[in-house]
Design a binder for these strands. Structure first.
Lengths: 137, 137
DNA sequence: CTCCAAACCTATAGTCTCTAGAGCAATATA
DNA sequence: TATATTGCTCTAGAGACTATAGGTTTGGAG
């Protein structure tokens, strides 16, 4: 039996966030102590770790909800899980592509030596002047 | 003189977002027409393009506010602008790393042939089991 | 056993960065 | 001039939390 604080420490999910997830129906309302405090079991811990993990990876609450639902029915074909994953994969690749471009731009921008003034700073010029970008953003 | 719609089309920033930026103090309230409509000048366009550009690069509103402030004082050393950009670069690299990991996980998931069930699907296992992660997230 | 700090409870409101809608006014075009 | 488009303000909503207020329970020290 874990208190909400234990759960928080073990999963890295903040206490108010755990309560928020309960409210959102991502985790079910746990048993309560005599004094009405939440008391969790090991499987709650696992479920919350699953959620935390998914959020860290950038999955939306909705995506996680779907996956949790699927994981609760191990006998179903995993086509749905695949579909969800594929959709997310496209998204992730898109994000990576954009971030790579951004990385390159920032690298050039940061390459200045700090021995000059804002007037000729690349950061400012790069942001102000569309003509300096490599990409199409 | 541009209307808010012109500005929107030229910068790619949506009309309500422009009004939002005005409200947040990122851009100053422009002159108005006889009929109380916003009328912008070239420098407003440039400022908004700067903001848009920064947002595209994933900079926070606060970071952009700082950079705008800096760009208004071209005589200052540009160390701060560099610092803002560098910090952001570190952040971006971190995100890329995490997303790559996720991409690989998702690829493996999607590679499944759909002929099995959720019970042995990698998505579910990968999310549920911390031990399967490559990294430290 | 008693006391007290720490952790917990609920409920509400705020954050951030927009986005959408209602209802009405101004402007541009045919 | 009639009408379509664009603009105005104000309010609310989304998504995923986070903070605060004011009260209750718990766990450990004395």
């Amino acid at each position: 039996m874990f208190s909400i604080g234990d759960l928080s420490r073990r999963t890295g999910v903040k206490v108010p966030t755990i309560r928020y997830y309960e409210q959102m129906g991502l985790i079910s309302a746990p048993e309560r102590s005599e004094g009405n405090q939440r008391r969790y079991e090991k499987r709650d811990l696992e479920r919350l770790a699953f959620i935390r993990h998914g959020r860290d990876l950038g999955l939306s609450i909705e995506a996680i909800r779907d996956l949790l639902e699927l994981s609760g029915h191990p006998e179903k074909p995993c086509g749905d899980a695949d579909r969800i994953a594929s959709e997310h994969l496209a998204d992730v690749r898109d994000k990576i592509t954009k971030l790579r471009k951004l990385e390159h731009e920032l690298e050039r921008i940061v390459a200045c030596d700090g021995n000059h003034t804002v007037g000729d700073c690349y950061v400012i010029r790069a942001l102000a002047d569309h003509g300096l970008c490599e990409g199409e953003h």
